[in-house]
Design a binder for these strands. Structure first.
Lengths: 242, 242
DNA sequence: GTAGCAGCTATAGCAGCGTTATATGAACTG
DNA sequence: CAGTTCATATAACGCTGCTATAGCTGCTAC
């Protein structure tokens, strides 16, 4: 392992690619620009990354781990719903700070790459939501809540990125944030929402309990017990017609 | 103007481009493929559209006008909030039906093209919301409401497109839709959320579930099951120290 | 030492891309 | 029929992502 002095070609390529990608505002960046900026010839790139897309993926992965790091550095405030707000805002902030990277991460449709990113972000958000669920604050399962929140979060962030930086109105973010959060979580556990289907409060309580179990005492229940338990929940919720 | 027979090269180019763009699943489509499919040589393309991007823009514009047409063909039901749902669903459906086109329209960040599309979609949605504002009361201005709804709508649609068609769960759409709508339109009186203390954990959730069970469906669980269940609750609650 | 081996990097070049300078044909207009 | 304009074709340019091949480095084995 090298220690000091000049960075290795691989690192130089990564940094050059990241820099050029950030500068050149959305327009494509050529491998020749990158290798020239990294003072390296073409085969070096392909030796280390196999592909242009491989290099870009590495850049994106770096940016994504930065994103996850920022997410993880957010302390739990003790108020789960407030935590949800912070994570939402952090997501938006990251998107605006790394606009190009963000659009590659979340605006792209590559059926291979994006789901990986999205799934990771989703999983992390699900953890936060599980904590909210443990506090009886959730009216739907953490998984669905995470997907919904993340989708709205991405939509808002893309929209904010798309419009000129001067005109950006962060209230769009705050407003949509509150909309989704209030539909997904209740600040007080007294008022479970009865939507069009008339979801009974049993389901709400069951979801909360289930989440609480998973968070705080995952080993108190064997998997078979848990399975049976969930089966009950389903049976109960499916028959609650009245 | 030509009338019948074979379509003019310009139309053939448009159709070929649209077809190839729809088929080749996200991967780039070359001008040579397009001109070959349209049985035309390169300069014809550039004569009519100036640019590859110009051609693609024309394809997108065609798709977008199709989208607007579909939007406009939705009748007003008399219930403005119900109208919002229909427009939301129509947006999602269009996105899933024209996945590639959609991502070019809304997933892209081209600071030139996208705002045009978005602004048009936004303006149209704002009209619908204005009607909602006239009939029942909106919580916020139609303009902000339209932006928020559209952002969430786009986020959800992109997310649905991104995941394999087989696994698509449209409930994500319905859920987020209701979230945004209920925050934007005062269909039922929902509390503007203010935070409270977040103490409860497993015990509270368990008690809530237990109470809910007893109230609504006491006979859904056999006595032995209930006994085991209550045993769990006790086991869990006795160790939760928070 | 030096022979062999593995890991990086460089030379030079390919096929494909978007694009265009130039030329040719077709279709009106006078 | 000549003139003008529009529409298409020929052939090529410069650029792209990528690679077959070869050379250089630093290592271990004898």
């Amino acid at each position: 392992m090298k220690k000091g002095g000049e960075p290795a070609p691989k690192a130089r390529l990564l940094r050059a690619a990241a820099a050029l990608l950030a500068e050149s505002n959305g327009e494509p960046v050529s491998t020749r620009q990158i290798t020239e900026a990294a003072r390296v010839t073409a085969p070096t790139l392909y030796h280390h990354f196999g592909d242009k897309e491989g290099l870009f993926d590495a850049v994106v992965a770096e940016g994504f781990s930065e994103y996850l790091e920022a997410e993880r550095s957010i302390p739990t405030s003790g108020q789960p719903v407030e935590d949800l707000r912070r994570h939402w805002d952090n997501h938006v902030r990251f998107g605006l700070d790394h606009a190009h990277l963000y659009t590659v991460m979340f605006g792209n449709i590559r059926p291979e790459r994006r789901p990986t990113m999205v799934a990771s972000a989703e999983a992390f958000l699900e953890e936060v939501l599980a904590r909210a669920a443990a506090a009886s604050r959730l009216v739907v399962s953490p998984h669905e809540a995470a997907r919904s929140m993340l989708a709205a979060n991405i939509g808002v962030t893309l929209m904010l990125i798309a419009e000129p930086a001067a005109k950006r109105n962060l209230e769009l973010s705050a407003m949509t944030r509150e909309a989704v959060i209030s539909a997904v979580a209740t600040d007080s556990e007294s008022d479970p929402v009865t939507d069009t289907e008339g979801t009974p409060s049993v389901v709400v309580a069951a979801i909360a309990l289930n989440a609480a179990l998973q968070v705080s005492h995952p080993d108190q229940l064997s998997s078979s017990e848990l399975k049976l338990f969930l089966e009950w929940l389903q049976r109960i919720s499916s028959r609650s017609g009245s």
